[in-house]
Each structure stands twice: as structure tokens, then as C-alpha cells.
Design a protein around this nucleic acid. Structure first.
Lengths: 110, 110
DNA sequence: TTCTTATGCTACGTTTTTAGTAGCGTCAAT
DNA sequence: ATTGACGCTACTAAAAACGTAGCATAAGAA
């Protein structure tokens, strides 16, 4: 066992995708990445952009994201790392897809 | 206001991507899509594949996913819809990326 | 200097979500 | 008739998230 890979919520495999799905499965994680994708932002800036996320959660998410090497603290606030940017590109792709997805499903549904 | 777009957790915009991020931000949602990506699966099958997710949550997730038009109930259990498959492809892309991501970050970290 | 203003963040009580286990009703095969 | 698997609901306990208040620090204006 060369890489213990620290068991992750909902999965003992340690497969990277599982780690990622686990991370993404926590509330606000993806949203924070999404907002940072638009540029650096301060703690309080993120708070308002995320529509009043509680500071407790925001802080723990930022910790997780920094541990994951996706976000880091810069001079102008928090920024995406190169890896974070790469993931952000995937989110952009999802954005494009989601557009069509929404249009496709019955537009006159509640 | 042509499409009320039913305010979504953490966002009042109703932008499709927000709806998606919201959905994905719930525990197990992405994991379920991931498992279904591998093929149709029964309720109990999903339960075991997801490592003992409680039936309560699995059921509410499946409901959300069906409402979202990503999953449907077929004769052999639950299946991804075309939209679900498309999303699954994005997950596959993420899988590939996550591989490199994991390799890139310090491999001898706890 | 003193006062304001903004920052990142912690404390803590309340609410919401998830977990965990038990079991019901249905159906098909034995 | 009984057994087994199925989809799923009920219910309580535990964990996560919320919401508000506030602290400590630092930079700028008065």
C-alpha cells in the first residue's frame, strides 16, 4: 500500500474521481469554484457573491479547496490555482451544456 | 417574467448552471450519476454500489434526478436519460482530469 | 493619535440534512 | 405457502449548515 489515500466520505477506494465527487458533493464547493472562475475575490466578496453563505462554511470550504490544491490565497484575495482553473474550464463546459439542458426540458414547467 | 424558474438553493437567478451546481452540491447526487453511467442499476444495486447510502437519501436523490430529466426508471432498473448520458460524459472527462490532478499533487501526502 | 472602515475569521445556538436501522407491501419463483 | 428480492417509507440519532454576533488585525482619514 504505497498511497494510503485517506478514505474519503462515501468511498474507500481513494480513486481521484471519488475524491473529486466527494468534494463537489459538499454544498457550496462548486459554487465557490464557479465564482472564483470569474476572478480573484476576497472572503467577504465571496460571501456576498454566494448570496450570504455563512462564514463558517465558507471558511471550511476554502480550507478544503486549498488542501485540494485548487485554490490559494493571493494578495488580492482568493484565487484559483492552475488546477483550479482547469477545473473551472470544465465548469464552463457544464455551463454551456446546462443551457441546452434547461431549454430542452419543458419550458413551461413550474 | 416568463419563466419563474423556481428559486434554487443558494441562488435566486434560476440560471441553469446554478440549478446544476445546486443539484450536484447535494451529497450522493454526482455519485449516483457516476454509477448509472456504468449501466442500468436497481435501487438496491445502487445502494450497495454507493457503499451503503441510506434508502431515504437515495430515494430523494432519484426523485430529484428524475425531476431534472437526468434519470428515469426503466425495466431493468434506473437508467440515464440522453441528458443524463451527456452529463455522464462530462463526468468521464472529469475522471480523466482528476487522474492527473491526483498525480500532480504531492503523492506522499496523507 | 484617535476614529473609522474593511478585512479574515471564530463562537455558538438553531435549523436542516443525512445516516442508520427496521420493516411494509408487492411480485415471481420455488 | 414460503421464500427471496424488489422499491420504498418511518422513525430516531447524528452530522452538517445556517445565521447572527463579534473579535482581532490592519490601513486610511481626521
Amino acid at each position: 500500500m504505497t498511497r494510503p489515500a485517506k478514505a474519503v466520505r462515501g468511498s474507500t477506494t481513494g480513486r481521484p474521481i471519488m475524491v473529486l465527487l466527494d468534494l463537489a458533493g459538499q454544498r457550496w464547493t462548486l459554487r465557490i469554484l464557479w465564482e472564483l472562475q470569474a476572478g480573484p475575490e476576497t472572503f467577504r466578496g465571496l460571501q456576498t457573491r454566494c448570496g450570504g453563505i455563512s462564514p463558517t462554511v465558507l471558511n471550511t470550504r476554502l480550507k478544503s479547496l486549498r488542501d485540494a490544491g485548487l485554490v490559494e490565497a493571493g494578495p488580492n484575495g482568493y484565487v484559483l490555482t492552475p488546477d483550479g482553473e482547469a477545473l473551472g474550464q470544465h465548469l464552463l463546459a457544464l455551463d454551456a451544456w446546462a443551457q441546452g439542458w434547461a431549454d430542452r426540458r419543458d419550458p413551461r414547467l413550474p
